[in-house]
Design a protein around this nucleic acid. Structure first.
Ligand SMILES: [Zn+2]
Ligand SMILES: [Zn+2]
Ligand SMILES: [Zn+2]
Ligand SMILES: [Zn+2]
Lengths: 165, 165
DNA sequence: TTAGCGATGTAATGTTGTAACGTTCATCGA
DNA sequence: TCGATGAACGTTACAACATTACATCGCTAA
């Protein structure tokens, strides 16, 4: 298990797309469904880590998560274990890594395969995300035109959010 | 000194744009000119760090650079010092930070203000770059439409380059 | 039963980034 | 000449992020 989705899935799956955003219990449920669907187990540890991750408004570092999960379980959970599960989440599309922040964010639409554009505020740290398939497909196309294959776009925009501006 | 260029500079400076790529001595010369133009000094240390940075085909970590510059000077240069100067380079557009690699790359067209799309090969690590102003301006526009200001796009594509594919 | 396997625990270590403060050197006005 | 100022760089220490290797536990197929 834990295979990367085939690139073509992006092409075909993109045309008619809802981009339905989950939140709260609905999100956890969708995440569990997506993980099980990928042939992976929804364990207590994974459930806790996802729950903690989903409470964050800002991208959370693995260490942030480790601290909170440790509290929640009343027993130290090492960053190591958190990284393992975050990697799984990223691979199965339950979470995204925000490269410009060395941190992770829950995917508000697990099971929905597409490239997201993340907006991260330099002041307050909050992250929101835009779905613009035309734009992200153009980026993919440009990279592929340059001879790249198996592309994975990283599109993030740093700046000041409306509240902090 | 060391001011961020005003966002509007991107708009106005973009229409008629050459995207001339420098290399080797020409690049170092262009970098020096750009730095001096920004009101900063072109010191021996900065010259050495830029020279080392420019030899890399792949994004170079500050520590990589520190090692090579230490060799070149026959005296230990702490990563700290390298970071200081890399930050200056990034601010003045002599270098770019590749967020998805925690590393830096010399800007092949210093003095030329625009967003670059970096392509980084997951296998060999080499980085190339595409200039597609229509695309990058669309990303800026999307972020601004979402209420973001002073935006700084981070557009990178991970994948397999033509050689490694 | 027990061999295998997936998930998690533990410990150690490696890599990347920052903070605080000291030294050197050029410039400049008194 | 002298002391003040400020930029560049040095030194040390530490914080934050990430990986590696190996151990343990519990489940289940042979
Ligand atoms: Zn969607
Ligand atoms: Zn904000
Ligand atoms: Zn250009
Ligand atoms: Zn390659």
């Amino acid at each position: 298990m834990i295979d990367q989705p085939h690139p073509s899935a992006y092409i075909t799956g993109m045309a008619a797309h809802h981009h339905h955003e989950h939140a709260g219990a609905s999100l956890a449920q969708a995440a569990e469904a997506a993980l099980v669907d990928a042939g992976e187990q929804w364990t207590d540890m994974r459930s806790d880590i996802f729950a903690v991750l989903a409470t964050f408004e800002k991208p959370a570092s693995a260490y942030d998560i480790a601290d909170l999960v440790s509290q929640r379980r009343g027993k130290r959970v090492a960053p190591n274990s958190v990284y393992r599960i975050l990697d799984l989440f990223v691979t199965t599309n339950l979470a995204r890594r925000v490269e410009s922040a060395n941190a992770y964010i829950a995917n508000s639409h697990p099971g929905c395969l597409h490239d997201c554009i993340f907006l991260i505020c330099d002041s307050c740290g909050t992250a929101t995300h835009i779905d613009d398939d035309a734009l992200t497909m153009s980026v993919r196309a440009a990279a592929e035109h340059a001879g790249f294959a198996q592309v994975r776009p990283v599109i993030e925009v740093r700046g000041k959010c409306a509240d902090c501006d």
